[in-house]
Design a protein around this nucleic acid. Sequence first.
DNA 1: GGTAGACCTGGACGC
DNA 2: GCGTCCAGGTCTACC
Length: 316
Amino acid sequence: MGTTLQIQAPADFDLPRDVCSYGYFLLAPNHWDVDKQHMLRVLELEAGPSLCTIDQPSGGKVRARFDRALDRAEQTQARSQITRMLCLDTTHAEIKSFHKADPRWKKSGVGRLFRSPTLFEDVIKTVTSCNVTWPSTVNMNRRLCEVCGRKSPSGVPSFPTANKLARTRVGTLRGRCRVGYRDQRIIDLAKLFHKGHIDHDWIENIGTDDEVFKFLISLPGIGPYAAGNIMQLMGRYSRLALDTESIRHGKAVLNMTGTDNQMMKALKAHYEPFGDHKFRSYWFEIWRFYESKAGPATTWRRQATATMFTAANLSK
DNA sequence: GGTAGACCTGGACGC
DNA sequence: GCGTCCAGGTCTACC
């Protein structure tokens, strides 16, 4: 008999909307069940991995059902991981302050961005999203779980821990996980996390945005785009994560013109009025564009998006 | 400080 | 089916 947890959620939290708010909800080991409108994924806990089904049956508390019994310490750990994934610690008041800065999103209520249960997983997912198209990111994450993850009692693999990736061979990551030149960088990052060289409290809560950005770009495989993205995944929305997709958005949706450098400057100026919320304003514009092309995100299936979100398709 | 080229995978395309 | 081209962000060497 597995454990079931009931987790308090903010009054404005809406599971399907707030899970299907950022692309990582489509990356393994996350699995969004379109028919049942619930999330399945394996969480790495103290006594080993456990498959967890997360839903919000009556629109109130979040329910998490596990495929094995969890002791008290594991329950605390699971609550903390789920809270991070779903941004349950982002209060209604914080969302309202975002809507005050950018009222376009007040009606839909969006404001929380889905993320991983750990900062480490968010960092590795970001590295796998650099210099590749979305289908490759989907495949890399699937293979990382299949090759390096541990299986829950139900036989579903987890996302590999920092400890595991720190001990994985370069050849395994390149040959079997197909991460390409990112192999050594992933191992180096895993070692930094595993050896405790990343101060989670400082990076997530104490350091200023400028200090944290400077630190992130000093890490292997992390440049300005990746650092900006990791910052938003920590709830720091004051910086943009600009890439070629931003250029496409600027041209197609904001009617901007010019060279790439001019476009980057214009994009920064465009989102400046949103201050500390600028990443969210930028992101929900992009997300709205994707949904106009592919339907509501709550209906997206991982493999379908692997062909949907190619530059060729989006520019059509 | 700015720029060019290498890094690697997988999709698209032409033959 | 095979070969070629291209997209994608980071890193390093060079000016």
